[in-house]
Design a binder for these strands. Structure first.
Length: 193
DNA sequence: CCCTGATTCGC
DNA sequence: GCGAATCAGG
């Protein structure tokens, strides 16, 4: 595969879109993430700051250079990174009608880590529901150390499956499920009074 | 361990 | 110019 115009286009688009090199490589096909990164560098867009290229007179600044004003603005629209520290605690009210989660709990079985409280981030829940659509739906035996172990459905039903998406870190769940599984701690039984 | 991007260097 | 290998984080 070579870097045709279209492919470069897509590369640019995805890169500035915050996609990771590996994702781009996967999308393009026929190239590795290294190739993508290499190309990205050659194109000179290593920094995803596509919005402020004009302002780089000094290639290197070995010594403290008395640079004048630096009106350089970094309009970073949003955190493109998949992972991000969520200070949270700034999102109090969550009253949106959450898609009622089946609260099936067969006695004697390991309780699903499904949050009993629906006080999670509405966005997180929404994300979970999205993810569940494209989940790999693997079985118990297919679980590995790096597959999301989030259970879905009734264990006593053929509909039961595990998320199976790649876990984010050393966690047992994929990113989406980590989001709802690991609640910092708050809103449990605190009554606004 | 999985993942990221950055750099190097032979091709 | 290209990208595998390698490096350097998280």
């Amino acid at each position: 595969m070579s870097w045709t115009d279209e492919r470069v286009e897509l590369l640019k688009k995805m890169w500035s879109d915050g996609q990771s090199a590996s994702q781009i490589a996967k999308e393009l096909g026929g190239v590795t993430r290294n190739a993508v990164i290499g190309k990205v560098h050659r194109l000179g867009l290593s920094n995803r700051t596509a919005g402020a290229p004009p302002s780089k007179p000094e290639p290197v600044a070995p010594k403290a250079k008395p640079m004048a004003a630096k009106p350089e603005t970094k309009p970073k629209p949003a955190a493109p990174k998949t992972e991000a520290a969520r200070p949270q605690a700034a999102a109090p009210e969550t009253k949106s009608a959450v898609p009622a989660r089946r609260q099936i709990i067969p006695a004697g079985q390991p309780l699903p880590p499904q949050p009993s409280a629906n006080e999670i981030s509405p966005e997180a829940l929404a994300k979970v529901n999205e993810v569940e659509k494209k989940a790999k739906k693997i079985s118990l035996m297919e679980l590995t150390e790096r597959t999301c172990k989030w259970p879905v459905g009734d264990p006593a039903t053929p509909d039961f499956w595990f998320c199976g998406l790649p876990v984010q870190s050393g966690k047992p769940y994929c990113e989406a499920h980590v989001g709802v599984a690991f609640q910092p701690m708050s809103s449990r039984r605190d009554r606004k009074r």
